[in-house]
């Protein structure tokens, strides 16, 4: 099991549906992570910025992503490989 807290930029492909954003693919370095399930979304304020946290999983790992609404930057903040 590997459980890490990180703060690394990632490229994320998303689907827009109404006012909802759904990540479907995450590219972290050379790793491509295909999202199978969006488990939980929550939001918070970080300084001036509103951020959303997406807890997503694939068949073999879990990731938590942070989307900064101001600069639209995605970061990988948690990775869990059982």
């Amino acid at each position: 099991m590997q459980h890490q807290y990180l703060d690394e930029p990632v490229d994320v492909t998303v689907l827009f549906s109404g006012r909802r954003v759904r990540p479907i693919k995450v590219i972290w370095g050379r790793t491509v992570f295909v999202v199978d399930k969006l488990n939980l979304v929550h939001s918070a304020r970080e300084g001036l910025d509103k951020v959303f946290f997406f807890s997503v999983s694939s068949r073999d790992s879990f990731m938590q992503l942070r989307l900064n609404c101001k600069n639209l930057e995605w970061r990988l903040i948690e990775s869990f490989v059982p």
Partner: peptide, 15 residues
């Protein structure tokens, strides 16, 4: 999580 050493750097929690 703010108590993780080094804040939000690369930190391994379990193991």
């Amino acid at each position: 999580r703010e108590n993780l050493q080094g804040g939000f750097g690369r930190v391994t929690v379990n193991g």
